[in-house]
Simulated assay, not measured.
Amino acid sequence: MPWEEENARRHVARTEELLSGLDTLPDNVASRRALECVEALVDLYGECLGRVMEHAASDEGGEALARRLAEDELVGHLLLVHDLHPDPADVRVRRAVEQIRPQLRSLGGDAELVETTDEAVRIRVQGGGRGCGSSPDVLEQTVRDAVGGAAPDAGRIDIETVQAAEPETLIPVDALFRSGTLTGRGAG
């Protein structure tokens, strides 16, 4: 029975915690052996996954199957680990930016992919500062998290922050006053 997404995320976090603790074990020989065992297992599973992707690609409709597999968050990340993801990094970056734009807009900002190269991704983030949780730092971190998650192989993430222009006032303040009083009040 497949895991629910939250259960999968918890398991990934626990696995990362266990793996990062291997090098802190007091017995260096056991620590190295455990790490070698994990690496061998990851390599083996990667080879198996590669063969699954090859078999899928050779069948009619294989491209659609590869796409569905890559769109699954857990499987997609596994494909990335083994350099088997069907989409290149620039496609995944572009998709990630488009997917978070509604969230950024709700925070008073926006993002635009400027350039992708082998070394870096350059993204322009605009806005911030209007309302709770809409600082430029929050917008930048939202972009970094989305792009880093979708394309960890994309290289450096360079973010150019542009402050949003102050919105023009619909009615100039001085138009509300006539002879020192508000229009429509106290003139009588």
Rank of each mutant, 00 (worst) to 15 (best):
P136Y: 02
A13S: 14
T15R: 09
C48H: 12
L69Q: 04
T142A: 09
T117L: 03
R156V: 14
E63M: 09
L19C: 14
I171C: 11
E160M: 06
V75M: 09
S134M: 08
E115F: 00
S179M: 07
W3S: 10
R101K: 06
R105P: 05
V91C: 10
E60T: 13
G184E: 13
V173I: 15
F177T: 12
G108Y: 05
P136M: 11
L113Q: 03
L49W: 02
E140C: 14
G61M: 03
V81S: 13
P172I: 07
L35R: 15
A146L: 11
V29Q: 09
R92L: 13
V75C: 07
E5M: 06
G61V: 05
W3F: 08
S134K: 05
E115Y: 00
G109H: 00
L41E: 07
L41M: 12
L19A: 12
D118G: 05
D72P: 02
V147K: 02
V81I: 15
V12Q: 11
G21H: 10
C132I: 02
L107M: 11
P102D: 02
V173T: 14
V81Y: 10
H11R: 09
P136V: 00
R105D: 01
P86M: 13
G148K: 02
V52N: 00
R156N: 10
D59M: 12
A165V: 06
S31Y: 02
L113W: 01
D137W: 07
P152L: 03
E63I: 08
V97E: 02
A165D: 07
R33K: 15
A154I: 07
E36K: 10
R124A: 08
A66H: 08
V29F: 07
L22F: 08
H55T: 07
A146I: 10
P2D: 00
G149A: 03
G46A: 03
V93A: 05
T142Q: 09
D87N: 14
P136K: 03
T15G: 13
P172R: 03
D83Q: 15
E5S: 10
D118R: 09
G133R: 00
V75P: 07
G50K: 03
R124S: 04
I100W: 04
E5T: 09
R144C: 06
D145E: 09
G184K: 10
D158E: 14
P167L: 10
H55G: 10
R124D: 02
A8F: 11
V162H: 08
G61E: 06
A96C: 06
L107F: 05
G186T: 12
L80E: 14
